[in-house]
Amino acid sequence: MAIHEPQGNWWQPLSKDEKIWFILALVWMLVSFLYMPIQHFIGVQNPPSESYRVSAEDFEALIEAQEEKYTVGEENGFPVVRPNPDEPVYLKASMWEWTPVLELEKDKTYKIHLSSVDLVHGFSIQPINLNLMVIPGIDYVVNLKPTSSGDFRILCNEFCGLGHHTMVGKINVI
C-alpha cells in the first residue's frame, strides 16, 4: 500500500500495460518537446530575442528625436508619427500611455524598439492578440510586418497602477 514501506527490492520490471503506457507517454512527450524548438527555427510566430539595456533618459531622447523628424499629425493629444521603415522605430510605455501613435505601411518590415520609462507594462496588440512584456530600462526589439491595413489598439496587460485600464495606444496601418 502507498501508505506503508515497500519491502525488499522494489526495482522490478514493469508489467505489460505499464510498459505500453510509458512508451506512449514518452512518445507524446518527445513530440511536444520537439515542437517548440522546431517551431522556433521554422515558424514565424516567435517572441523576438533581441534586447538591450537603455536608460529612461536616453530612450526619451530617441522618442523626441523621432517625433521631431517624423510627426505627421495629431490624434487625441498624441503625436502621429510615420517612421521610415529603414530606420529603427521607438515606442514608449509610461503610466498610462503608449507614445506615439504609429502610422505604418502595410507589408513593410519595421524594427520597433519597445521600452518603458517607469514601471513594467504589457504590450498587447488587438485584435491580433500579440503580447510582449515591456520592462523599464530594457529595450526590446520587435520585427513587425503589418499584413493587413486598418486601426489596431495597444492595450496594457500588466498591472501598472490605478490607471492601468486606461492605457490604450494606437497603430494605424495604411
Binding site: 487625441n76 488587438q126 496587460n157 486606461t166 494606437k170
Partner: peptide, 23 residues
Amino acid sequence: TFGVPRRHWDYNFSDAPFGYQFD
C-alpha cells in the same frame, strides 16, 4: 483567446484615449 486582459478593471476601456471594443 480574444485578448481580454487579466487583472483589468474595465475591459470596455471607457476612460481610455482610444476606445476599443472586443468581438
